[in-house]
Simulated assay, not measured.
Amino acid sequence: MQEPKNDPPSARTRTPRSNRERTEATRHALLEAARALFVSKGYGDTSTPEVSVAAGITRGALYHHFVGKRDLFRQVLQRESQSVREDIVAATPPDLSPQAALTVGAQAYLRAMTVPGRTRLLLIDGPAVLGLSDALAIDEAHAGDTLYEGLTAALGDAPDVDIAALAKLLSAAFDRAALEIDAGADAQRVREAMGWLIERVLVASGG
């Protein structure tokens, strides 16, 4: 009688990946490959065949998950902006006062934007490729939303202040600060200047 095979423990316990896991793995590989190419070559000089080759995935699979290069780029930006939001949330635990959370979150944003390629993707190529309104919408749904929430909590019922308008103006200032740092400015001085600006906003509102 033939003896039963003694498969290695890893072979006996390994389970096949579900369709959802395979789908997520494929999307992840495509987004990672696309991000690297968009950063190194720019949107205009990156092609979907290059992305497919870099990801090790067929071009047909790419178009199964994304409508085209522009949709792929949009998804890269949304994921990048979501990562910025997650970094801000992680840096501002709930036991902080609203005023401290606003100050700490502001610095967390500037740190998050130093991830290589992030400033170019979100603040330069994003508006150029998608248009300013679409790029701003992505920001307002993620990092910009944390700024609005932080201002609302920190300022409370501050008189004569439109918090939504203030959030957009401060967001523009933070974006410019991130661009300055990315261009080689003294990061510490830029962060201190933005911290000063946030303090002035809190003082002016009585916060």
Rank of each mutant, 00 (worst) to 15 (best):
P4V: 07
D7F: 14
P9K: 09
S10C: 15
S10P: 06
A11V: 15
P16A: 15
E24W: 09
A25Q: 15
T26F: 04
A29R: 14
A29T: 05
A34C: 13
R35G: 07
S40E: 08
K41G: 08
G42C: 01
G44S: 08
S52N: 03
R59S: 10
D71W: 01
Q75G: 02
L77P: 08
Q78T: 12
E86P: 15
S97V: 12
P98Y: 01
Q99G: 05
Q99E: 14
A100D: 14
A100T: 00
L102G: 06
L110T: 08
A112E: 07
M113Y: 04
V115N: 11
P116K: 08
L121Q: 00
I124K: 10
D125M: 07
G126N: 01
P127E: 11
A128I: 03
L132A: 15
S133G: 12
L147Q: 02
L147F: 02
L147S: 08
L151P: 02
G156D: 01
A158F: 10
I163E: 07
A164R: 15
L166S: 13
L166G: 13
S171C: 11
F174S: 10
D175N: 15
R176C: 13
A177N: 03
L179A: 15
E180R: 05
A185S: 14
A185R: 09
R191Q: 06
W196G: 09
L197F: 08
E199L: 07
R200H: 09
A204N: 13
G207W: 07
